[in-house]
């Protein structure tokens, strides 16, 4: 009896400290964390997401380029807003998803969390890159410059890109996937502080970049005929992001579950 008790004490001590402190998770969470369930769900969702996203982005681009009126001050250069704002928004959302998923993977040792984080990182980096480039292109005819060092909004957006790239570089430094997961998760979670800083940078510091247009709820800053295409584009970009994440996530699940029986079955059924 004594010996068994001692063994139990040892095994409970070697359990990860954090997950011991955290509350246990409800059952649905574990089902959601089950790779075969998520893989099959992704198979069902992917075509819907892809086609709706393509329709919304095509329609939103047409509305933004043709139907929306030119701005009273900026003329037609204002139409860049329809690609710039969705890219910037998705870059930040991708980081929040990456950090949250990495935290879930780190704390509860759910591998799927790390798989989601790895899937979101390159997509988030590309959207952040897009936000920086389209912002520069928009800045030239309006502000008079492509880039302005010292503008808080621009600097923190650049740091967001570096965080994505740093996360990917850090992972590449490990041969052991478990270690890569755990170490890179720390960087992802620490870096999430940058997201609210980006959002509030235009209010906390005096910047060349203007304040928020659509996220403030008081007096409207944009007329409805200009806002509608923007909202369509934001939804379209979000669905496109979801489609991209699901593709990469399925790839990650296949890599990580290569020895699992369900996957072997699935793969042999496919190739047969």
């Amino acid at each position: 009896m004594n010996r068994v008790g001692a063994r139990q004490a040892v095994s409970s001590r070697t359990r990860p400290v954090l997950s011991g402190l955290m509350p246990s998770l409800p059952v649905w969470f574990h089902r959601w964390g089950s790779p075969p369930h998520v893989y099959r769900l992704a198979d069902r969702l992917r075509p819907w997401l892809g086609w709706i996203a393509a329709l919304l982005i095509a329609g939103g681009a047409f509305a933004g380029l043709v139907l929306a009126p030119p701005d009273y001050l900026q003329g037609d250069s204002f139409r860049i807003i329809y690609v710039h704002v969705p890219s910037a928004y998705l870059g930040m959302m991708a980081y929040v998803l990456m950090a949250a998923a990495a935290a879930v993977g780190f704390v509860w040792r759910i591998k799927l969390g790390h798989a989601v984080a790895v899937s979101a990182a390159p997509i988030g980096a590309s959207f952040t890159f897009l936000a920086l480039v389209t912002g520069g292109i928009w800045g030239k005819p309006t502000w008079g410059t492509y880039w302005e060092w010292g503008d808080a909004r621009l600097m923190f957006e650049l740091i967001l890109l570096f965080l994505f790239l740093g996360y990917l570089a850090l992972r590449a430094a490990f041969d052991d996937q478990d270690k890569a997961d755990r170490v890179s998760a720390i960087l992802a979670v620490v870096g999430v502080i940058n997201v609210p800083i980006i959002h509030y940078s235009v209010e906390w510091w005096s910047t060349l970049h203007q304040g928020p247009t659509i996220s403030k709820l008081d007096s409207p800053s944009i007329t409805m005929d200009m806002l509608a295409p923007l909202l369509v584009m934001i939804v379209g970009f979000t669905l496109c992001f979801a489609w991209l994440v699901l593709n990469r996530l399925q790839g990650q699940i296949v890599e990580r579950e290569r020895d699992a029986r369900w996957l072997r079955q699935l793969v042999t059924e496919r190739t047969r």
Partner: peptide, 14 residues
Amino acid sequence: LAKHDENYMPPEVA
């Protein structure tokens, strides 16, 4: 450099 605000509207509205 020119700094514009966060308001966008068609010329008629302006």
